[in-house]
Amino acid sequence: MAKIDIDFDYREDSSCGDPDVDSAKLYDAHKLLWDKVLPCGKDLELNVISSGRLLIKNNLQANFSSDRMCPHFDGKYRGKFDGWLPQADIDELQYKVRTIGGHIIFPAHNRNGFTVNQARGVNRKICDRFDLTLECIRRFYLHENSPLHDALERYNDFFDLFVDFKGYIQFFLLQDFVDELNQVRFSLPFDNFSRAPLPQTADEYNEYRVHVIGLVNRRNKRIHEALHA
Results as ranks from 00 to 15, higher is better:
K96C: 10
R222C: 11
E12L: 15
N182C: 14
F177K: 04
N217R: 11
L93Q: 06
L181G: 13
D7T: 11
R78K: 14
L215S: 04
I213R: 07
L152S: 03
I6H: 05
W34E: 12
D22M: 15
V21Q: 03
F186P: 13
P19I: 13
E225W: 06
D150W: 00
L38K: 14
F106V: 08
L38H: 06
L54Q: 02
V163K: 15
Q61H: 14
L132D: 01
V97C: 02
D20Y: 09
V184M: 03
F177E: 03
V210N: 13
Q170K: 14
A202N: 08
L198H: 11
P107G: 10
A226C: 11
R209D: 09
L93P: 03
D131M: 10
Q200I: 11
T133Y: 04
S50R: 12
D9F: 06
F114Q: 11
E12V: 08
R139T: 04
G167H: 07
E207T: 15
I100K: 04
D82H: 15
L142S: 04
C70Q: 06
Q87M: 02
A229W: 00
I90H: 03
I90C: 05
D43E: 15
N156M: 06
T99M: 03
Y141A: 07
F172A: 13
L44I: 12
D20W: 07
Q87I: 00
A29M: 02
C70N: 09
S50Y: 07
L188A: 10
D191A: 12
N192Q: 11
P189C: 07
D150Q: 06
L134N: 01
T99P: 01
V122M: 00
F171N: 10
R209N: 13
D128K: 10
N206E: 15
A62V: 09
D28T: 06
F114I: 08
Y77Q: 02
R139W: 03
H30P: 00
N47H: 07
A29I: 01
F81M: 02
C16S: 15
N145A: 12
F162P: 01
F159W: 07
R218I: 03
L174V: 11
P19L: 12
D74N: 14
K25V: 10
D164W: 10
G121K: 07
S194F: 15
P189T: 09
K3L: 11
F159E: 02
L32F: 01
R219Q: 13
A202Y: 03
G121P: 02
F73V: 02
R185S: 09
